[in-house]
């Protein structure tokens, strides 16, 4: 993307007035991330936390909680939208803790209350492959929620934790979750199937409309392989995906959910069970992002790109963060 210098200056000026929220981040929560988030003007970042690696959190010795305590001068562990606004006022960065799978509850849905108290505020249900809760997007055959899954989505709503469907979940499980919940649900990070046919990790128009009809938000990822089937994606491809969804469901129902993996240095072959080649590149070296979105420093370029494509300031403010704040406030309460 070539932005003329005048527009770039205007975009940066606009960007600095925005309250920018990233609806899902898969980066390592490390010190280096904090200045990077600030450089990109990101006020709130939802990270995958409250788990031990890929396992359920078996103790309350959460590394994420320790990290947040140790960096309290620059970070706010946000559990309310007021916390996020306070972080903005104080020049700090808000970190929201969420899950990408809910089978961390094991077989006991009552554990969710404890996780809520530790700060869990958003929960995906199934990560790519079927689990105790439901079926995943890469399963050989898709189906709805399990009995536990029904209990999980009901309890998540009761606790006012955001129910995060689609993307990694199968569409059958996602529609089932819509059936067993009321009110706002979201998809924190996906891409439109219409622009990336053949990748089961992407989302159909039908499910995006269903989420928007319930007042929710669909976050768009910048993961290269979800943007384009081969070759290198650019920030323009990312903006095409954002615009497609804006055209489909309107600017009130689209956000960014960049799903970057900053600081996670993994090389070599990918486990094809959760990450089959039709959905993910088979080598970690190819888990990449458009150059400008490899880390957060390029986030202002999203604002610039939307401005250049003729979106109004209010729509840009919604897409870059206020939509997430709206639904989080609805779900979490004031």
């Amino acid at each position: 993307m070539r932005v003329d210098p005048g527009l770039a200056a205007e975009a940066r000026q606009l960007h600095d007035t925005l309250l920018v929220v990233n609806g899902l981040d898969a980066s390592e929560l490390r010190s280096e991330l904090i200045p990077n988030l600030r450089a990109g003007g990101v006020t709130a970042n939802l990270v995958t936390g409250l788990r031990d690696g890929v396992r359920p959190l078996t103790t309350v010795a959460s590394p994420h909680l320790h990290f947040l305590r140790d960096h309290a001068d620059t970070l706010v562990h946000a559990t309310t939208v007021a916390d996020i606004r306070r972080a903005r006022r104080e020049g700090r960065t808000a970190i929201v803790l969420g899950w990408q799978r809910s089978d961390y509850v094991g077989e006991d849905v009552n554990r969710l209350l404890g996780f809520h108290r530790l700060g869990l505020r958003s929960a995906g249900l199934v990560y790519n492959v079927g689990n105790y809760v439901g079926s995943g997007c890469v399963d050989p055959e898709h189906g709805g929620l399990s009995h536990l899954g029904v209990e999980v989505v009901r309890e998540l709503q009761r606790l006012r934790i955001v129910v995060d469907i689609g993307g990694h979940c199968s569409e059958a499980t996602s529609f089932d979750a819509l059936e067993f919940t009321t009110g706002t649900v979201v998809c924190s990070h996906t891409n439109p199937r219409a622009l990336r046919p053949g990748n089961p990790r992407t989302m159909t128009d039908g499910l995006m409309r269903a989420i928007a009809d319930r007042g929710g938000v669909i976050g768009i990822t910048a993961f290269n392989f979800f943007l384009v089937p081969f070759g290198l994606a650019t920030i323009d491809d990312f903006l095409d995906h954002v615009e497609y969804v804006v055209d489909l469901v309107g600017p009130k129902h689209v956000g960014i959910g960049l799903d970057q993996i900053i600081g996670r240095v993994v090389m070599g072959p990918v486990d094809p069970r959760p990450f089959p080649p039709e959905a993910y590149p088979p080598r970690y070296e190819d888990w990449i992002y458009p150059d400008e979105l490899t880390d957060f420093s390029g986030v202002p370029l999203i604002t610039a790109g939307l401005l250049e494509r003729g979106h109004g300031d209010d729509d840009i403010a919604d897409i870059m963060g206020l939509n997430w704040l709206r639904v989080w406030e609805e779900v979490w309460g004031a």
């Binding site: 492959v129 079926s135 050989p140 055959e141 189906g143 709805g144 399990s146």
Partner: peptide
């Protein structure tokens, strides 16, 4: 056998 769904084995 008591589930709401009746899918075949998953990949795993």
């Amino acid at each position: 056998c008591l589930e709401r769904t009746d899918l075949p084995l998953t990949g795993l």
